[in-house]
Amino acid sequence: MTQSNLAEGPSPTQQRPDVLATQGVSMAFRGLKALQDVTIALPEGTVTGLIGPNGAGKTTLVNVLSGLAAPTEGEVFFEGERVRRWTLGSAARAGVAKTFQQSRVFGEFTVLENVELGALNSRHDVDAFHVLEMLDLAPRWNLLAGELSFGELRRLGVAIALATRPKVLLMDEPGAGLTGVDLDQLSVAIGRIRDEGTTILVIDHNMRFLMNSVERVIVLEGGMVISQGTPAHVQTDERVIAAYLGGSHVAD
């Protein structure tokens, strides 16, 4: 179900312009190199997966892209232009939104109000109900955010980010801790978001969830990009197999 929906989407081609990209980004924390010379690109309208073992630098890379952290070396490009003063707020206003690992929501507001708060600084008109429907949250519109289930809370976090009408949506482990129906709903929602033209980068540990949902994969290991390409290409890359996937996963 999930796979077929996404597979029907536009296939990634080389001609698509890159919405968000990095050039030689490095990040050092007191000698520890979290990222080394990372050059990646997110072609417009695609879903890209970012995978790698724990400590590979996935979250650090997303933080650099979202403006939460400034790289010690290298540059970030948004719509072809080098970014300056790239902070979480300015990135969001420019059109790069981020969802968080822990489901962050505005706890004192209803579900609908949460989406409206997300849309507060959007340069476009936002149909809050449409956003809720994309995340299967419309029937819950008048509940307080605190009254939602775990899976709904996670989707509300995505809805808030989506309410900014981003060009790029960076999702930090959206599937973490989710199972069954919740994971499927999220997967379908990611497809819907992509279908409306949003470029998406998804970090996840869950290999099956990712491989089914994405058109391109970037594999990080030890702060370096060891492979980049279609899921099929990446899954057969020997360095990836050695570093992360292991024989049993590839056999699937």
Binding site: R93, K98, V105, F106, L117, A119, L120, N121, I160
Partner: peptide
């Protein structure tokens, strides 16, 4: 409610 989340939506 949440400074980081607020910043992440451009507040």
């Amino acid at each position: 409610d949440d400074e980081v989340l607020a910043a992440s939506v451009g507040v």
